[in-house]
Amino acid sequence: MQNFLIRVLINAVALWAAAGLIDGISFGDDDAWTSKVVTIVLVALVFGLVNAVIRPIAKVLSFPAVVLTLGLFTFVVNAFMLQITEWIADPLGLAFTIDEFWWDAIFGAVIITLVSWLLSVVLPDGDD
């Protein structure tokens, strides 16, 4: 359970960093920081569930493209997971939007990957 909470917080920080660095990714128009924090954590939870359920299937189906591009297609798969998160967040009433797939979602996936990796190295994961 502790590992799951750490992963959700890492995803939340990574999503917040991507939204801060890329104009096309946003968490609603509300200026109240408390509602933004709650939205970011809930979107991080959805993002974690999408990565746990859909990403393994997408990785298997995209394996030939990943091999042909020497792993660079992984960023497209990650961007697709981010786009699916947006599609799921909308009916749930979470104000999470991505303007363009090819620019905003791809660069957002790169930022999320880098921030998640960095925080995973720094923070304990509970497996030790």
Rank of each mutant, 00 (worst) to 15 (best):
G71E: 13
V13G: 04
V76R: 12
V76D: 09
A52D: 07
V37C: 07
K59Q: 15
I98Q: 02
G93N: 11
V13R: 07
A95G: 13
A19F: 01
R55C: 00
F75I: 04
L49F: 11
V67F: 12
L61V: 12
V8Q: 02
K36H: 12
D31L: 12
V50T: 11
G28A: 05
P91N: 07
L72E: 14
G93L: 02
A105F: 06
F47I: 01
I106V: 15
K59N: 15
V41A: 06
I98V: 14
L42E: 12
K36L: 04
T39S: 08
T97C: 01
W87C: 01
I10M: 03
V50R: 04
I54Y: 10
Q83V: 09
V50D: 05
V43C: 04
I88H: 05
A65V: 11
A58L: 14
D99V: 10
L92F: 05
L68K: 07
M81G: 02
A95I: 07
L42C: 10
V67L: 14
G24D: 09
V66G: 00
A32F: 13
L72Q: 11
F80G: 02
I111G: 08
I40H: 08
G20T: 10
A17Q: 04
L68S: 10
A19M: 03
V77E: 04
V77M: 03
V67M: 14
F47P: 00
W102Q: 04
W33R: 11
T97K: 13
L45I: 07
G20E: 08
A58K: 01
D90T: 15
F27K: 00
D31I: 10
P91T: 04
N51C: 03
G93H: 10
G108M: 06
G20W: 11
N78L: 00
I6R: 15
I88V: 15
K36T: 05
S62H: 08
G71Y: 12
V8M: 04
D90S: 14
V77I: 13
